[in-house]
Design a protein around this nucleic acid. Structure first.
Lengths: 244, 244
DNA sequence: CAGTGGTCTAGACCACCTT
DNA sequence: AGGTGGTCTAGACCACTGA
């Protein structure tokens, strides 16, 4: 290592900034995959040829930003979207406390991306993408219809897997099948009238107001890997957001 | 000073935590009011009989939490109203890009807290609180009705100020008038039918669906200082959320 | 027990602002 | 020039974890 860590970085930046950038890059590149701990502070200090205090500062900042978890006596680990965790991080409709809704994938097909899907996923219009139609239910009562598009060939494994082996949560399946970890998402809410197809699935009338949620989900590296359009019955709708 | 700073604090807590609590108390007590800088790191270190490094850590944390501003070469100051900052952090309804909607406070009165308000604000039911009724408009067209409750006597200045002097944003006014800085908030969305009073203000029919947003806003220290209930027309509703 | 991160100190040097 | 916060180092000691 050449004294700074990130070779291409602006050498006018402070040491800790350059090291932080490089370490974040390595974290995002999935070094130390699985349950492995990062090297201890002393090892990183030696590797980057900086003092332990500077390494500490960088690791503490990355932990504060949610990339790492540190535990005294154990070590420093990449914060993974743990299965149980990712539900409540990305599932924002509420009503049942801490329960996971049932999930039924009604359809799975490879389709050319229509304009809106292509733009969201950042692919050319007409490119083949994988489409899922999915119903979510509380105690056999459907409350949400989801159209989900993911890019190919990244998600080829999901196109071929036995759907009965996919649990009620998709993001853990993304991780297991395609190695894709969802790091952030943007949701856009609006209110619409039901279309006939959606009304049939949700068992509601065509004049009932629906909540529409457009979600774009990204990896930690900000690559868009899912576009999802969900419809839910407005009258049973509960959506909670923390603003920090 | 007795070596720790906060005399009543649990001596098992780390030094930096005790000093931080004490310093925060002094900041909230408005020591160093006006434009005065806090004492330099070296002076605080001497006063608390701790090392400069520990003082640095405390000040850096308090700055990260929004209480202080630090500037190299000048000093450390209590953070003052920075209007630009709180602008779009808490405003989640979209449609116009980056514009601030007009705002009209229709009513201001002191009322006993009803059950839901009391619970949200963490005061006893029947306690006097300040209530605002506020209309928000795009180009003279109302799109949002807000009932806002804040605790007294904390917000006494807001109860007395000339309302024409309050701009289109409340949180900067909270800062200027009551010294309250909003650090985080929780919003809960649901869909309802319009009540006659709201329908009149929004100029809509009683069967039109409305979006209801319940917001609880807190200081950086997680003290709840505002409960707000907003109603908006569903058909013009756009709400965007980043999930990280 | 060895190894990890957490706390705390002491001090050198630098970058920036004010006067 | 003098004083401020920003960076970086070096090292001591403690608390916690796991074998």
């Amino acid at each position: 290592m050449g004294g700074a860590g990130a070779p291409g970085a602006d050498p006018r930046l402070p040491l800790h900034a350059r090291v932080k950038d490089d370490l974040l890059r390595r974290v995002k590149a999935n070094e130390w995959a699985g349950d492995a701990a990062l090297p201890p502070e002393s090892a990183l200090a030696k590797e980057y040829e900086i003092s332990v205090g500077t390494v500490r500062r960088v690791l503490t900042e990355l932990a504060a930003e949610g990339y790492l978890e540190r535990q005294q006596g154990r070590g420093t680990y990449i914060r993974r979207a743990s299965f149980q965790h990712s539900l409540f991080r990305f599932f924002r409709m509420h009503g049942r406390e801490g329960q996971i809704p049932d999930s039924r994938i009604l359809d799975r097909d490879t389709v050319p991306a229509e304009a809106q899907v292509a733009e969201a996923l950042g692919v050319a219009e007409g490119t083949d993408v994988l489409h899922l139609l999915r119903l979510r239910l509380w105690e056999e009562t459907p409350f949400l219809v989801e159209d989900i598009w993911v890019p190919l060939p990244l998600f080829d494994p999901l196109a071929e897997v036995d759907l009965t082996e996919v649990g009620p949560l998709l993001y853990p399946a993304y991780e297991q099948l395609a190695g894709v970890i969802i790091g952030s998402a943007t949701e856009q809410l609006s209110i619409e009238q039901a279309s006939p197809a959606v009304a049939a699935l949700l068992d509601c009338s065509l004049i009932d107001p629906l909540v529409r949620i457009d979600r774009t989900a990204r990896t930690h590296a900000d690559q868009v890997v899912e576009y999802r359009r969900s419809y839910g019955l407005a009258k049973s709708f509960q959506y909670q957001v923390e603003i920090n």
